[in-house]
Amino acid sequence: MNLLSVRDLKVHFPIRRGVLFDRVVGHVYAVDGVSLDVARGQTYGLVGESGCGKTTLGRALLRLVPITSGQVLFDGTDLAALSSEGMRKERRRLQMVFQDPMSSLDPRQNVESILSEGLATHNMIGDRKARRAHIRKTLDAVGLPSNALERYPHEFSGGQRQRIGIARALVLEPDVIIADEPVSALDVSVQAQVINLMEEIQEELSLTYVVIAHDLAVVRHISDVVGVMYLGGLVEEAPSDVLYVSPKHPYTKALMSAVPVPDPEVEESRERVLLRGDLPSPANPPAGCRFHTRCPWRQETRCDTERPELRVVGEGHKVACHWAEKIEAGEIGVREDAVVTG
């Protein structure tokens, strides 16, 4: 059922200092105890602001960063326990699409070389003619002309480059694609092309996606289930529509109300939660609920001392807040100076 399951995943980066040999002087708690499940054929969206650990989490799924502890169960195997050679082989089935299509393509490789590298690595389709045919078919699937083969990344527009990035993942016929900010480097008018392409490919090849982005609107659009991250942990997880209509975690509420909507009527009438201050450093996260330093619904002592677990509050809806029900029932009100209208 669940193709990909993450159990209590932690990724802590050591902070090194030293003159001759480096000493570890602390850790950045980039991902600090995340559990989530992604069903086959589903799109799981991860959203959060910079520094929340979403990119690290995405990379940890592929073990592109060292995993400190926890499990990444893919189709029954724990990727975190595999040898590095075993992991390398498994990568064929889990592919990644990167944010910046220019820097994630080797500028000295032409498109054919980019697309055949993975095939060669995994000894797929040894016959040269068959390989070329497969590459052409993939190019066609992502909407690039076949004369693109001899060209180099810098000769394409941003949107086309991202299509190359998608083709590079697709050519290996993976089961899962992890897309880290797949459209944020693209122009607005081109973003929709890539989003639609990703949706079409998913339908055709019944792929499973994990889409990571800071743009809540994009994530909501493309995902079946959305997980909201804050400072290394998941604070809320819900089906896409439910998340918008009834967000339960204070951070989700604030995040959602901060996203501008291209509609003056909505903009003028809706309420906005303004968070005070900035994101605390992930090297020194606050005790208790990670969000309590900025939360306008914060309650004395419990929020500062006890870290809330992610718990089920509805059909497929999980939240990590002690007071979610009371806030929903209106028993706990928001600090008034935090809300503005229009």
Partner: peptide, 26 residues
């Protein structure tokens, strides 16, 4: 019109299709 139709709105229900502007500024 094309820009408005091509950006996903935060408050759009799931399943609404986007209509991209074809091509690029090139």
């Amino acid at each position: 019109v094309g820009l408005l139709a091509s950006i996903p709105r935060l408050d759009a229900p799931r399943g609404e299709k986007l209509t991209p502007i074809p091509g690029s500024v090139r």
